[in-house]
C-alpha cells in the first residue's frame, strides 16, 4: 500500500516531514512576515513611543535621551491643544460630509447597477481610490485657484457674488478657495470619498431586496423604508468607512500644506517638528494623539458592529 516500490523523489520525503509536523510548517511560513511587521513596524512604533518620553534641549536643539514627561507637558499647552481641536473638528465634519455624499453612489451601485454597468461603476470608484494621492491634491489646487475653473463657472453663471460672500465669511473664508478652510474641507472629502463608498456599498449589497419589498408590503413609503430598514442595516458599513475618513484626516499633513490658510493641523505640525525644528520628541508625542483618538473610535465602532463590514 505504501508506494515503497516507486522510488520517492527527495522533495517527497521533505513533504512527509512537514506533513507529520504541520505546525512546524505554519511556523516556518509565519515567522518571516511576522519578523518584518513585528520588528520593523511594531518596533518602530515603540521607538516612536520611546521618543515621546525624551525631550529637546532648548539651547542646543539636540534630543536629550533621558526619560521625562516634559514633552507631554509641552503637548498640553493651549497652543498645541488648539491644533488637536482644529484637526478633530475637521475630521468629524469631513467624515459626516463624505458619508452623505457617498450614500447615493453606494446605493445606486449596490441596488441598481447591473452587469457591465456594475463593473464600470466599481472601477469608477476604485480608480480614484488607487490613483495617485498627490496628483489628486494637485488637481484641486488647479480647481480652487483664484483664476481657476470654479471662479470661471461662477462668473459665467453670474453667481460670482455667491462665491465672494462665501469667502468673506469669517473663519472658513479666505482670499480664495484654495486659501480657506472650505478648500481644505473639499479636498479632504474628495480624497477620502472612495474609502467611504466601498464599505457602504458592501453593506448595502448585503441587504436582501426582499427586505425592502417586505417593508413596502407592510405599508412603508420608500422614504420610510429607507429610514427604518436600509439605513440601520447600512450603518455598520458607513461606520467602517468613517474609520478610514476620520483616521486619514487626523493624520494627513500634505493637504493642509497645499490647500488652506496654512493654520497647522496635527499632521503638518508633526511634519514641521520632525523636519525643520528637529524636535522629534514633541512630534512623537503629537502622533500619540491620533493613535489615542483612533483607539477610542475603534472601540466604539466595534460595539456598533462595524468590523464585520470591513
Amino acid at each position: 500500500m505504501s508506494s515503497s516500490s516507486i522510488p520517492a523523489p527527495i522533495h517527497s520525503s521533505v513533504s512527509d516531514f512537514f506533513y507529520r509536523n504541520s505546525r512546524l510548517l505554519t511556523l516556518l511560513f509565519i515567522v518571516p512576515p511576522l519578523i518584518w511587521i513585528g520588528i520593523v513596524y511594531v518596533g518602530s512604533l515603540f521607538a516612536l513611543l520611546l521618543q515621546s518620553f525624551y525631550s529637546l534641549d532648548e539651547f542646543s536643539g539636540l534630543v536629550v535621551h533621558e526619560l521625562t514627561l516634559a514633552t507631554y507637558g509641552h503637548l498640553f499647552e493651549s497652543s498645541n491643544m488648539v491644533i488637536v481641536l482644529r484637526t478633530t473638528v475637521m475630521a468629524t465634519i469631513v467624515t459626516i460630509a463624505s458619508s452623505i455624499v457617498s450614500f447615493p453612489i453606494a446605493y445606486y451601485a449596490a441596488r441598481y447597477a447591473k452587469g457591465g454597468w456594475k463593473a464600470l461603476f466599481y472601477l469608477a470608484v476604485m480608480m480614484p481610490l488607487w490613483s495617485s494621492y498627490l496628483v489628486k491634491v494637485y488637481a484641486w489646487k488647479l480647481i480652487l485657484a483664484k483664476e481657476g475653473i470654479i471662479t470661471w463657472v461662477a462668473e459665467k453663471l453670474h453667481l460670482g457674488f455667491v462665491l465672494e460672500t462665501l469667502l468673506s465669511v469669517p473663519v472658513i473664508g479666505g482670499s480664495s478657495l484654495s486659501f480657506s478652510y472650505i478648500g481644505t474641507f473639499l479636498v479632504f472629502v474628495y480624497i477620502w470619498l472612495p474609502y467611504m463608498i466601498l464599505p457602504t456599498q458592501a453593506a448595502l449589497e448585503r441587504v436582501p431586496g426582499s427586505l425592502i419589498e417586505a417593508s413596502a408590503d407592510l405599508g412603508a413609503t420608500p422614504g420610510q423604508s429607507l429610514r427604518t430598514v436600509i439605513l440601520p442595516l447600512a450603518l455598520p458599513g458607513v461606520i467602517a468607512g468613517s474609520i478610514f475618513t476620520f483616521s486619514l484626516t487626523l493624520g494627513d499633513y500634505i493637504i493642509p500644506q497645499i490647500i488652506g490658510n496654512s493654520r497647522p493641523f496635527i499632521g503638518s505640525t508633526v511634519y514641521a517638528l520632525q523636519g525643520t525644528a528637529g524636535d522629534i520628541p514633541l512630534a512623537a508625542a503629537f502622533t500619540v494623539v491620533p493613535i489615542v483618538i483612533m483607539g477610542i473610535y475603534l472601540v466604539i465602532a466595534r460595539r456598533l458592529g462595524a468590523f464585520d463590514a470591513l
Binding site: 511587521i37 520593523v40 513596524y41 518602530s44 512604533l45 521607538a47 493624520g251 494627513d252 502622533t287
Partner: peptide, 24 residues
C-alpha cells in the same frame, strides 16, 4: 490585526515611527 495595522493607522504614524527608529 497586526498585518492590517500599517494601513489602518494614518501614514504619518508609520512614517514618523520609522524615522524615530532610524534615528535611535
Amino acid at each position: 490585526l497586526l498585518f492590517i495595522l500599517p494601513i489602518a493607522l494614518p501614514g504619518i504614524i508609520t512614517g514618523i515611527a520609522l524615522r524615530s527608529a532610524f534615528d535611535i
